[in-house]
Amino acid sequence: MKHVTIKDIARSLCISVSTVSRALTDDKNIRRETREAVLREAERLGYRRNPVAMNLKMGRTNTIGVIVPEMHTPYASQVVAGIQSILYKNNQKVMIAESDENPNRERENLQMMEEFMVDGLIVSICSYKHNV
């Protein structure tokens, strides 16, 4: 399934990609008629904003990574639920990874969080001797 992009809207209307982008973000330098045409075409084509692209443009993901050694105990699940509750109220998304008390998996999870460009990390280390 191909996602509709701002390039598709621009091609359809024979206008620049930057004009489409500015129209979709309600830039004050775009004429009302142009903005309305872009919005109509976006709706017709089924355009949905791409949060990944927006995150790249803004330099933020609004995501916090949480790495825990385990989530089997009631305590661990309550801690994770509490973290989610606070972060969701502040419009932050949460990416959770479990290390299974394995320092190597913990390291892999840290690398994954870095690849996904999370804005911050909450880590409960699995071993103080093998802290990565």
Rank of each mutant, 00 (worst) to 15 (best):
M1S: 14
K2Q: 13
K2A: 15
K2V: 12
K2N: 15
V4A: 02
K7R: 10
K7F: 06
D8V: 02
D8N: 07
I9Q: 08
I15A: 02
S16A: 00
S18R: 14
T19R: 01
T19C: 09
R22T: 03
R22K: 12
T25S: 15
D27N: 04
K28I: 12
N29H: 08
N29W: 11
R32S: 15
E33G: 09
L39F: 14
L39E: 09
L39A: 11
A42E: 12
R44F: 09
G46K: 05
Y47I: 12
Y47E: 05
R49M: 04
N50V: 03
P51R: 06
V52H: 05
M54W: 11
M54H: 11
L56K: 14
M58P: 02
G59L: 09
T63A: 11
I64E: 03
V66L: 02
P69R: 10
T73S: 15
P74V: 14
A76V: 05
S77D: 12
S77I: 14
S77L: 13
V79F: 01
V80Y: 04
Q84E: 06
I86H: 07
I86Q: 09
L87A: 15
K89D: 06
N91P: 01
K93M: 13
M95R: 09
I96V: 15
A97V: 00
E98T: 08
E98Q: 11
S99Q: 14
D100A: 02
E101D: 07
E101C: 06
N104F: 05
N104L: 03
R105A: 03
R107G: 12
R107L: 14
E108I: 12
E108L: 15
L110K: 11
M113R: 02
M113D: 05
M113W: 06
E114W: 10
E114L: 10
E114D: 13
E115G: 06
E115D: 13
F116L: 08
V118Y: 01
D119E: 04
L121T: 13
I122Y: 01
I122V: 13
I122S: 04
V123K: 05
S124Q: 11
I125T: 09
C126K: 05
C126F: 01
C126T: 00
S127Q: 09
H130N: 00
N131K: 14
V132Q: 01
